[in-house]
Design a protein around this nucleic acid. Structure first.
Length: 703
RNA sequence: GGCGAGGUAGCUCAGCUGGUUAGAGCAUCGGAUUCAUAACCCGAAGGUCGGCAGUUCAAGUCUGCUCCUCGCUACCA
């Protein structure tokens, strides 16, 4: 397939905090390298970015800080955008999902699918905060963890013990917004029938895109093999793109529905020819993302595009793995991060150094680790010592030995050593091209540094500074010595000029500085010039040497490490205040508020019986479920119960329990549960059976 | 729990369809040199390829089990 234009997207950063090194390494640096390379190739490129500004976390932050969600996103959008600019991330447009164009585009997209009759409407019960009048995502219900008693566990997971939870399990659940206990409320949503696209996706991803990266292909396969299900594409919230339907007040598009459409809206804002990029088959669409986004970009968004019709689909989705920091996961809440806006201040002029190091350790095939020592080493012994030093040596020697001008070349004196250098340049061009086209940026950048290393070796072998000693002797010897020097320096300078072209996608500011030294224009950086032997004209005078990179001192690194340790300490201290050590805690026994009054008839509807557990076994593929058969006297029923974390199956056989026998059956992990066992939960979250004081006949009623 | 990706020298990574003494770069140590930002250049040392079994004449490379890390994801009185 011959592509005529390249559409590059980088995941929309969430405008709920500043950028850190993980974001950059994951998708912004690789996408920028790719975009710059494609532009150097003179291909038509649109490099799209923007802030993702919807979603619940932003509304929560706004509520906590008593400002509007718009103020939250304005703050971070501006900061993020500035960081990108300073780092030289060359978006053709950096937009945002709160823009009117985006709202319109996303709403139209939804409306089209709706009009085509694609959505399924379903009602379900969701947690609701009555005071704040808003539905609560699991994450925003807080309570005490039933496993480890952490009083600040979230409704989806306890961060202290790592157990995944549901809001139902939390002891004394409360809303993160108001601290009131949440209630359940019915709500209606629109579901996208992902399942209908399963056969097509299987063909498109698994058959037609076997070349995708292992991690990407593997995860898609895993999703597709386990079957796709309809997915809700709307949420109850006031912040977001309103659902464009009558009677849908208070409902917005699900952020994962609206965010990828943001790529389209941003392109619309960039150019009125946006449809060339999004709708013509000869566009190569590439999504740069982190591994946490794979299914959205490889399954859900393509299915949406397919359902809508008329759009190109991604040619590749080179997702990176994650970047850790000094051996630990990057964490915003723990302040364990290298924040870009801080880096830019503290290492002014070293923007390219960060780009370099993050590419050198890019998590292309597995998670990698950012260490300040590694950062310093990469700068001092690769950028400074190899690349910067080579360019500097060339410039200094040229000024000392060639009068500040590009010396002529004397072909009669060229030997194998010289031609090898030109071959190396051409080889490097090929390696860099191939590697970038295959999204192997680490390898590509390495090849560039390696070429500079070859330059150093070349100078070392030729030792023009020694030939300079012969100049004093005069006569034939001096003439020959000068010719030799001319050749060496000519070649070394042409090599330097080539290095500028090669390094440009990776370190654009460095390439610019080199152009300045050589007194040439940007045009030289076009990729077709790479590999050329005559980039700098003979006799042309070049500027005085200037260093491309400065050394980074131990003290600077120590300061950064100390700063990280400070924030770790501060976090530990804050946690200690929040969660005093368990033994000192006297569990405060509070009682759940009494529920709404009911009449006797309501109670009488519930049919309770005493039963005896006859068998119990763990349910396959489930942590918390036990499959029980319970003898109720009149029949034996299968009941699935979420108590596996509290009881061993063999210990509860023969136990008497109280069962709700007229509860509608419900399937759990494929097994139909025909009733519910009453359990009492103590203040530590432990479950206890409710049963008769002494064993009685099974089937006995309970009133 | 299921699935996916990954576990190769101190660090960051290569190792294709199994085949001689497992490769780079950085860090370390030694040498040489001074044009260069105590930079470059040359050389050395450094790995039972997560563990255990198995297939094979031969396994880092294939199979099974197992441990660890990260990600996705399910059920929930």
């Amino acid at each position: 397939m011959q592509y005529n234009r390249v559409l590059i997207t980088a995941a929309l950063p969430y405008a709920n905090g500043p950028l850190h090194v993980g974001h950059l390494a994951g998708c912004y640096i690789p996408s920028d390298i790719y975009a710059r390379y494609q532009r150097a190739q003179k291909r038509e490129v649109a490099f799209i970015g923007g802030s993702d500004e919807h979603g619940v976390p932003i509304t929560i932050r706004a509520m906590k800080e008593s400002i509007t969600p718009q103020e939250v996103v304005d703050r971070y959008h501006t900061q993020i955008k500035e960081s990108f600019e300073q780092l030289g991330i060359s978006f053709d447009i950096y937009s945002r999902t709160s823009s009117p164009v985006h709202h319109e585009t996303a709403a139209d997209f939804f409306k089209k699918l709706y009009d085509d009759g694609l959505f399924e409407e379903k009602e379900s019960e969701q947690y609701y905060d009555e005071e704040k009048q808003t539905f609560l995502a699991d994450r925003y219900i807080i309570g005490t963890c039933p496993i480890c008693s952490n009083p600040n566990a979230y409704g989806d997971q306890c961060e202290k013990c790592g157990t995944s939870l549901s809001p139902e399990q939390l002891i004394e659940p409360r809303s993160a917004l108001s601290n009131n206990p949440p209630v359940k409320k019915m709500t209606k949503h629109w579901y996208f029938p992902l399942n209908q696209y399963e056969p097509w996706l299987k063909e498109w991803v698994l058959e037609e895109h076997k070349e995708w990266k292992n991690n990407v292909y593997g995860q898609c396969k895993s999703w597709l093999d386990s079957g796709l299900y309809p997915r809700a594409m709307t949420r109850d919230s006031k912040w977001g793109v309103p659902v464009p339907l009558p009677g849908a007040e208070g409902k917005v598009l699900y952020v994962w529905f609206d965010a990828p459409i943001g790529y389209i809206s941003a392109t619309k804002e960039l150019t009125e020819n946006w449809a060339d990029y999004w709708c013509k088959d000869d566009t190569k669409l590439v999504h740069f993302i982190g591994k946490d986004n794979i299914v959205f970009h490889c399954i859900i968004f393509p299915a949406m595009l397919k359902a809508h019709g008329g759009f190109v689909l991604p040619d590749n989705v080179p997702a990176n793995e994650f970047l850790n920091l000094e051996g630990d996961k990057v964490s915003t809440s723990r302040n364990w991060a290298v924040w870009i806006h801080e880096y830019l201040k503290e290492f002014e002029g070293c923007e390219d150094v960060l780009r370099y190091y993050l590419t050198a350790i890019a998590p292309e095939t597995k998670d990698s680790d950012f260490t300040w020592k590694g950062f310093q080493d990469a700068n001092n012994s690769e950028l400074v010592a190899i690349f910067g030093n080579f360019v500097n040596r060339c410039m200094v020697l040229m000024h000392k030995l060639c009068g500040g001008k590009v010396p002529p070349i004397h072909p009669e004196l060229l030997d194998n050593e010289d031609t090898i250098i030109f071959e190396e340049i051409k080889k490097t061009k090929q390696i860099v091209e191939d590697a970038i086209e295959q999204y192997k940026f680490r390898e590509a950048q390495f090849a560039v540094i390696d070429l500079a290393r070859k330059g150093n070796q070349y100078l070392q072998k030729r030792e023009p500074w020694k030939a300079a000693n012969l100049l004093k002797e005069g006569g034939e010897t001096a003439i020959n010595a000068q010719k030799l020097i001319d050749n060496v320096m000519h070649i070394a300078l042409q090599l330097s000029a080539n290095l500028a072209i090669f390094i440009n996608p990776f370190l654009p500011k460095t390439a610019k500085k080199m152009l300045h030294l050589f007194k040439v224009v940007d045009k030289m950086l076009e990729w077709e010039n790479a590999g050329k032997e005559k980039l700098l004209s003979v006799g042309y005078s070049l500027r005085e040497p200037e260093l491309l990179f400065r050394k980074i001192e131990d003290s600077e690194i120590e300061a950064q490490v100390a700063k990280l340790q400070e924030s770790a300490k501060a976090y530990a201290a804050a946690q200690a205040l929040l969660n005093p050590p368990a033994e000192e805690v006297v569990p405060e026994v509070t009682v759940a508020p009494v529920k709404e009054e009911i009449v006797f008839d309501d109670f009488a509807k519930i049919d309770l019986r005493v039963g005896t557990i006859v068998t119990a076994e763990k349910v396959q593929k489930a942590d918390k479920l036990l499959k029980l058969s319970v003898d109720l006297g009149f029949e034996t029923r299968t009941i699935v119960s979420g108590i596996a974390l509290h009881f061993n199956p063999e210990d509860i056989i023969g136990k008497q329990v109280v069962v709700v026998v007229n509860l509608a059956p419900r399937k759990m992990r494929g097994i139909e549960s025909q009733g519910m066992i009453l359990m009492a939960e103590d203040s530590s979250g432990k479950l206890h059976f409710v049963n008769p004081e002494t064993a009685i006949n099974t089937g006995a009623g309970v009133n």
